[in-house]
Nucleic acid binder design. Structure first.
Lengths: 139, 139
DNA sequence: TCTTGACTTGGAGTGTACTCCAAGTTGTAT
DNA sequence: ATACAACTTGGAGTACACTCCAAGTCAAGA
């Protein structure tokens, strides 16, 4: 990962460092997933390193299947301060479990794909075998 | 997995055995992802075990991130017969690699979540530590 | 025969997450 | 001073994958 400067003073740079698009950053702010960003005198958004890291963490949660609504909820808990810590922990634990289930599902599908690739390769070597696998896409 | 009978004679049963909804099955047929299903004299759809297994395989590809368009492409190759075998193998290999990348990403996010959970727990034990972690959502 | 329920069709509507646009403002280089 | 790029806003449009609906047909039981 690129290392993030202490502050950036344009949405373009924020996009560059977080991997989000400029439009997506504005959209997230619009729906309340990101807090209203500080503006310069010109009205342009500025971001601290702190905020950029938060955005990167959001992209990770999203990339692992958390919805924008769930992330908004998490953010609201964060804003309520320390009292919400236990709730935040349990959300993270639950999300971690979801990720684990997803991993298990992916591994199983990899096994099935391997099986199909093996079948395909056998048919490539000996086309007469073709009739043996009647399963769709497998023969 | 439930075992699938040799044939089913309604879309309801097909839905039951594949896990897809009736509407989704009709939708897949409409967009050409599934071939036009055989109909009884009444016009009701019937499906062979062969076809049901194909539908289950589609759900796996979809659950692991393949789009409907990509699946349509794969299906068309399948319909072109044996000559498309090498192409189908390479699509499967590529998809398997995508799954691997996804798994790697999920594992990395799990590690990050673990790190955050640890931080949270430390703060829960000793609230004074709270100032140490300035990273959003992490403190 | 009549009702009930499962099915058929084409097409409209939904939810999520963007993505783009028009009109206007500001900052920088020549 | 002027051009031009980068930014601002509210709001409209898009892509994907369904999901629902209305109107009609068909099969089986009371």
């Amino acid at each position: 990962m690129i290392d993030i400067p202490e502050t950036v003073s344009s949405i373009k740079q924020a996009a560059e460092f977080t991997g989000l698009s400029e439009d997506t950053i504005r959209y997230y702010e619009k729906i309340g997933l990101l807090p209203y960003a500080d503006r310069k005198a010109s009205g342009h958004r500025t971001y601290s390193k702190h905020q950029l890291e938060g955005m990167v963490f959001l992209t990770r949660l999203k990339a692992t299947g958390m919805t924008l609504e769930e992330m908004k909820h998490f953010r609201k808990l964060y804003e309520r301060g320390e009292a919400s810590l236990p709730q935040r922990v349990s959300i993270l634990i639950e999300h971690k479990n979801r990720i684990q289930n997803e991993i298990d599902r992916l591994l199983e599908t990899q096994r099935i794909i391997d099986y199909k690739i093996d079948n395909y390769n056998e048919v490539l070597v000996n086309p007469d075998l073709n009739k043996k696998w009647k399963s769709p896409f497998a023969d």
